[in-house]
């Protein structure tokens, strides 16, 4: 029975490991960023813009 060629195994495993690691890590990182951080910042900015409008309305009145 022929055996699998062993040339290129190191390079293949390096590329696979690093791409899987970075792929997984970056995907979950962006999931956190766009899934939690960005909506939280948007909510905060919305609150402050409403507050600013309210202050302007109070100042005008």
């Amino acid at each position: 029975m022929p055996i699998k060629p062993i040339t290129g195994m190191l390079r293949r495993s390096l590329v696979l490991d690093i791409s899987v690691a970075f792929g997984l890590g970056t995907s979950f990182g962006y999931l956190f960023w766009y899934g939690y951080h960005v909506p939280a910042v948007r909510k905060r900015d919305l609150y402050y813009s409403k507050l600013e409008d309210q202050r302007a309305a109070n100042a005008a009145a």
């Binding site: 490991d17 690691a21 970075f22 890590g25 970056t26 979950f28 990182g29 956190f32 951080h37």
Partner: peptide, 13 residues
């Protein structure tokens, strides 16, 4: 963000 990358990527990288 970086810690999440480490958390999910580190077991391999």
């Amino acid at each position: 963000f970086y810690l999440v990358i480490i958390l999910f990527g580190s077991p391999i990288s």
